[in-house]
Amino acid sequence: MSCSSNSPNSGGCGGGGCGSGSGGHEHGMDRRSFLRTSSVAVAGVAALAASLAPLRDLTDVGTAEQFFQKHYKKLTPEDMEKVLARITREVEKQYEVRPHVRDYKAMDGVEFVYALNLTRCIGCRKCVHACVAENNQSRNPEIQYIRVLKMPHGSMDPEKGDHNYTSELVPEKGSFYMPVQCQQCVNPPCVKVCPVKATWQESDGITVIDYDWCIGCRYCEAACPYFARRFNFTKPSIPKDQINPNMSYLGNRPRPQGVVEKCHFCIQRTRAGKYPACMEVCPTGARKFGNILDPDSEVSHILKTKRVFIQLKEEVGTSPRFFYYFDV
């Protein structure tokens, strides 16, 4: 009711001003209202431009080369060479270290399996930090691939675990310790849910991520039953003197902001025949790693001779390549 106005007039002015700007009749009121509408328009555009002011702080806008980079599996060897050269340049510029970046491929006849002896793990968390150092994880905000749970005797239910124990000395009586990291599932739910195939399982069983392809939707984080995936909520920060220069494309090269990462069994080490960093640092030898297709490997022995070994959350059907076992 109250909105009644002499519409042909008022509408006409407004429409002319905004629509085409050509409605300048030689009429005092029209000119005034034209000024008014255009001042709104100008102020609006100014506010629009100003609202984007934070983009001033956008430091590294990617190059066209980076933007149009193809999916890992579609890169030709020559493409990959260029990509590795670009990564080398970027690392050198940012961290003042000349890295050795390679694209390690899976070996034939190799399927990696991890086994962790819960009788021996003392919960010292050395694996957590060796992993951080080896894999160039962000120190702040902190990204860690391994979580060590302090568990009460008698339960394998991770929900009973303590993530933040600050004991003076470990191990403590009445507890055992269960480190959890990417379980490199045979049926990885994270791979299934990724909308852009930025994460996949390689022939040696390692589920990898193309950090240059991930769109950062974090659906994989929701899908993972092991809390194994980490997201770069902001630009990762790593002290220059702590960069590990031995890098791989699908592994420990520095990650950009806004993508997901996770344990990749130290691809830059294990595909070069070495043991992963978490195993090298374990003071008790609780961690075992190797090729399950080799009947003489340590992990083959464990799965053959140990009576009880556990795949965490067996009921979710992921079939991990990470086994927990006990002595005796």
């Binding site: 070495k274 030898g285 075992k288 490997s297 340590e298 002595d327």
Partner: peptide
Amino acid sequence: LAGIHGRTSGFWNVSMG
């Protein structure tokens, strides 16, 4: 002896190291 007790380090693939 089977390598499943105690610490092992270096190369899992003995043909490489």
